[in-house]
Amino acid sequence: MTTAPTMAAPMAERGLVGTLGRAGLVQILLIANTFLMLFPVVIMVFSGFKSNVEIFQQPFAIPDFTNLENFVRIATETTFPRYMFNSIFVTGTSIGLILMLGTMAAYAIGRYEFFGASFLLLFFIAGLTLPLKLAIIPLFILFRDMGILNTHLSLIAVYVAMGLPSTVFIMTGFLRSLPRELEDAARMDGASEARIMFKIMLPLCKPALIISAIHNLVPIWNDFFFPLVFIQQDSLKTLPQGLTTFIGEYNTDWGVMFAGLTLAALPITVLYIILSRQFINGMTSGALK
């Protein structure tokens, strides 16, 4: 531990703070960073409305937003809409199954006392730390033997397996925090276990279910690795994978490429802007205890 940085840092800061003020310095830093974050995205959107010549000669100019030629070409000439549909189907089905199966496991572990419950929780949570990518060879062979290579089922199976650990973790924690009196009262009234779960406990779980859904939504929607290995047939490709095919076909047509990237980014970006708080909570939730 040297004292040099300890001495130098406050002095440098005092110098800058003297001229700009601490708040001014913070503002400059944040504005510069936000510019660096948004500028590439803005250029991407702008370029989607331009022709090759415009992109090469005036890369930073504001385009004519009524020129939808690139987007029309994508909608009519390519299988892009198909990729989008596949992604929505695979992601939606996976999230549905993850929430259903995850809640079932979490409910059993979190609301009942039975032999091996804590071991089961540990088993599920262990999955959080395993990078399933490294088991791609056995998964490939397993799916070949099951005959589901080159189908959406293979992707859904992996995504559900990937999503369960975090969901069980989040949901168990949440379900355990709910007061026991609630279900005891219902039980006294003669409600069945299933009825207690569906009518009383699950409606209370909505915030935790949303966190779990978003926590899984982004990695599944964006995944590229598993389709790369499992899916060959073009009509079954998901958006990120289809994008590589699409870029390969249009690699001299910059306007179309940028328009494709813009379209691919659009659904998740819109959703993120509407639900930014939930997105940020959901995606950092695995990291926060």
Binding site: A23, V26, Q27, L30, I31, N33, T34, M37, L38, V41, V218, W221, N222, F224, L239, P240, Q241, L243, T244, I247, M257, L261, A264, A265, I268, T269, Y272, I273, S276, F279, I280, M283
Partner: peptide
């Protein structure tokens, strides 16, 4: 600071985008 909510949303935007989009 002023505009913190906006800066927070901006800095996290690329995190939700696919690596494939970012790479290309």
């Amino acid at each position: 600071p002023f505009g913190a909510a906006f800066h927070r949303v901006a800095v996290f935007l690329p995190v939700v985008l696919s690596t494939v989009i970012i790479g290309f």
